[in-house]
Structures are given as C-alpha cells and as structure tokens.
C-alpha cells in the first residue's frame, strides 16, 4: 500500500462535470423508459444495472475516486464486497425452501 504524500491537487474542468451530468440524466431517462416497457422479471436487474452505472460515474468523477490513491479503491472494494456478502448470505436462507 502506498501511503506517501500525495498533495498535488487534480483539477477537473467544469466541462467534464457537465458532460458527466448529461450522461447521468441520459441514464435516468433510460431507466424510466425501461421500467415503462415492462421487462417482467428483468425490470429489477436492468434498473439495478443502470443505477450501478450511474453510481460508477458519480464515484469516479464527482467523488474523484479516479484520481485518488489505489488504497481508496481497495477500501471501497472492501466495503462493497462486505455488503455484497451480507446480502448474498442472507439470501442463502431466503432463496431456498425453508
């Protein structure tokens, strides 16, 4: 793990933010439309996939994760994996006949 100082700031231009914002709005549009068509059982999956994509943009650009040290990415991986484990392991119980 690299813990050396990393003080020089990374400046992200306004234009880039506007671009990300437009992408997020577009994805919002897609998710609303997708829900409208009625994809049956896939509705949740599609909705969650789109939501994950949106959060990827927010995390990487708005929250500057892309420009942070590797440790931060490792951290967030740990956090998400932990949550994924909590939810999957709970469903070991619920998604099988009890």
């Amino acid at each position: 793990m690299s813990d050396h100082h990393h003080q020089e700031a990374h400046v992200i231009e306004y234009g880039k933010y506007i671009f990300i914002w437009l992408a997020l709005l577009a994805f919002t549009g897609i998710t609303v439309t997708a829900a409208g068509i009625g994809l049956g059982n896939w509705t949740v999956v599609v909705a969650l996939l789109i939501a994950s994509t949106k959060s990827w943009f927010v995390l990487n650009y708005f929250m500057h994760l892309k420009y942070e040290d590797r440790v931060f990415k490792l951290f967030i991986a740990v956090a998400f994996i932990t949550f994924a484990i909590f939810i999957t392991f709970t469903f070991w119980d619920y998604s099988f006949t009890r």
């Binding site: 609303v32 829900a35 509705t43 927010v58 995390l59």
Partner: peptide, 13 residues
Amino acid sequence: LIWIFLFPLFYLI
C-alpha cells in the same frame, strides 16, 4: 448515490 438506488427501487417497479 443512495437516491440513485432508492428511485428505481421504489418508484419504478
């Protein structure tokens, strides 16, 4: 971020 998930889960099902 949290709202990004709340929105489809409550409003779009």
